[in-house]
Design a protein around this nucleic acid. Structure first.
Lengths: 161, 161
DNA sequence: CGGAAGAGGTTGAGACCTCAACCATACATC
DNA sequence: GATGTATGGTTGAGGTCTCAACCTCTTCCG
């Protein structure tokens, strides 16, 4: 155990600060646009995006959670809210009495179809469009190293389903 | 206005997904370690870090907000909580009757001094240590492009102080 | 069968964060 | 100086997310 702390030097501190801020501010901007222009939160959009990509628009709650990497209670709260708004609906899963199917309603499909073009355009404008294809790959590889390292050292209770 | 949506191709989608996930998961892990090992939230840590870097441990609330890039109501709520925990305290600012000084208390200094070494070590382990200095610079430059672009296109009501 | 263990989901409490409304003080301009 | 405007800060409501406790249904195994 080092009693002396190995503080970040300026180069390291800069890289860390910019890494954190870039994501935070971009996410905030995109969520804000989404909410202001279409009345959808980022969470709403993610759920609708997954459901609308499925041809049937119906998937088991468990699968949805795995795709989103969400906790089960989070999905439960989120789904309750979206059900009240009439975007989706819960139905019993005939294959397993404990499970639920999450089903896209017409209003939900309409909402994602309206929002997606502008949202994708915003992602292009604020992120994709800033880089060449080669830079995108470099960027992804660097970020991926962070993800892989986290996955290698799992946390006690990492995904508490 | 394009009626046809320019969807992300696989390379673009991958870069975007990994960019979002890397930050989200790393932040979650670090905050969790901080909370579990020292009972400090990420927000607590940030406030204490800024205060403890100031020799006097006392700075005007406005300066704190600027440094953290926080909304004023957020700082107000956060400060109230930390005041109840005895980490910091609010004092009137003699230079301006509207303003407040945020002051580090001994318990707050102790808390950050205990937590900082491990937190910095965690940042090293999960982020800095994964890259060469040159890679760090590359990474920072890419992230910086995102930040700069956001700054160029300010949002209506961007930092609503 | 029948009971234990486990998985899927819900709920409620509490922390965090944003927004809008509000209060008090300072500043500007006449 | 008096009035209008801007600034610093607080408050309360509401949405988001996590955690722990709980309930139901399934599965396993004697």
């Amino acid at each position: 155990m080092p009693t002396e702390t190995n503080w970040l030097n300026p180069r390291e501190a800069r890289a860390w600060r910019i890494f954190v801020n870039a994501h935070k501010q971009l996410e905030a901007r995109l969520h804000r646009l989404l909410l202001q222009d279409f009345g959808l939160t980022g969470a709403d959009y993610e759920v609708l995006a997954v459901l609308s990509e499925h041809p049937t628009g119906r998937i088991p709650a468990q699968d949805l959670r795995d795709l989103l990497e969400w906790e089960k209670s989070r999905l439960s709260h989120q789904v309750r809210g979206m059900e009240e708004e009439g975007l989706i609906i819960r139905e019993p899963n005939p294959a397993d009495g404990r499970s639920a199917m999450i089903c896209l309603l017409p209003a939900g499909r309409r909402a994602i179809q309206e929002a997606a073009p502008e949202h994708v355009a915003n992602v292009r404008r604020h992120f994709i469009g800033l880089f060449t294809p080669a830079e995108l790959d470099t960027f992804a590889a660097l970020n991926e190293r962070v993800l892989n390292h986290l996955a290698e050292e799992p946390f006690p209770g990492a995904i508490r389903s």
